[in-house]
């Protein structure tokens, strides 16, 4: 009897080693999943690449050939209870691809709680900005890194416009630098409770035209190439103000 018990024990131990898998099915889920679903618009319609001519507030006619930005450091918090979720390694490169104006960011392991505020940043924080041995969205081969000294482009928009002399010229907006790192805080109309059965989806709309206005109207005849110039701060102030809105939360 004693021998048989040890035999059973050995069998179990071997089994554990052999499989090396733990069975979690009986544990109660303590986290859920969320998504930030980013839709990119210009003048209220899905942003079109190359094919559609837009007019900005300065009256410049322009097209967009490429648009992408870093959405980073996602947080969910409850300003009443103090519950706070910080997504680890939270760097996402959101891009208007030729196929879709919608980009989905999946966020896992969100503690089950009720939240009333979403926070994220546009850009790459100082801690990661000058290290180019990064992986994932920050991998330098994503062509968003300048170099070791200057860090990342936080937001990139490239395209063409017609100058006041009716010439074709380029639009090159590469916004970066620590001073352009912008935190955005979005209070939720209704608190949302993250649960283990459904994904909680935050629908964010980006309106490209807002990059070029309010408070500072950008005239491409004066500023069609913006990189490190002082004007870059005006652009990031523009888009931090009104370009990103929380349309709704689905649960």
């Amino acid at each position: 009897m004693k021998h048989q018990l040890s035999f059973v024990l050995i069998a179990f131990t071997l089994g554990l080693f052999a499989c090396n898998e733990t069975d979690n099915t009986n544990e109660e889920a303590v986290t859920g999943n969320a998504k930030i679903i980013v839709s990119i618009f210009n003048d209220g319609d899905p942003l079109e690449l190359e094919t559609r001519t837009y007019t900005n507030d300065a009256g410049n006619e322009y097209t967009v050939s490429e648009f992408k930005f870093y959405l980073s450091n996602v947080k969910l918090r409850n300003t009443s209870t103090g519950d706070l979720f910080i997504e680890p390694d939270s760097y996402h490169l959101v891009e208007r691809s030729p196929e879709s104006h919608v980009y989905e960011i999946e966020i896992t392991n969100v503690p089950l709680a009720t939240y009333n505020e979403l926070e994220f940043a546009i850009g790459v924080d100082n801690a990661q900005n000058y290290s180019l041995d990064n992986i994932g969205a920050l991998d330098p081969s994503n062509n968003m890194a300048w170099d070791w000294n200057t860090g990342y482009k936080f937001l990139l928009l490239e395209g063409r416009f017609t100058t006041q002399n009716q010439e074709q010229a380029g639009v090159v907006m590469h916004i970066g630098g620590d001073s352009n790192y912008r935190r955005l805080i979005m209070p939720l109309n209704q608190p949302v409770t993250v649960n283990s059965s459904n994904s909680t989806n935050f629908l964010i709309d980006v309106e490209v035209s807002q990059i070029f206005k309010d408070p500072t109207t950008i005239d491409f005849n004066e500023n069609n190439v913006v990189m490190f110039d002082a004007i870059s701060t005006k652009l990031s102030a523009n888009y931090a103000k009104n370009a990103f809105t929380l349309r709704s939360v689905e649960n």
Binding site: P140, S141, N143, A145, D147, V172, H174, F228, D229
Partner: peptide
């Protein structure tokens, strides 16, 4: 990338031949 107004001189090669691989954006 050169910015003449800012006195920043450049060959403009790395805009397309990107990062240490000096190859095109792979996305």
């Amino acid at each position: 990338h050169p910015i003449a107004q800012a006195g920043l001189r450049g060959g403009n090669c790395g805009d397309c031949h990107t990062n240490v691989l000096t190859s095109g954006d792979l996305n």
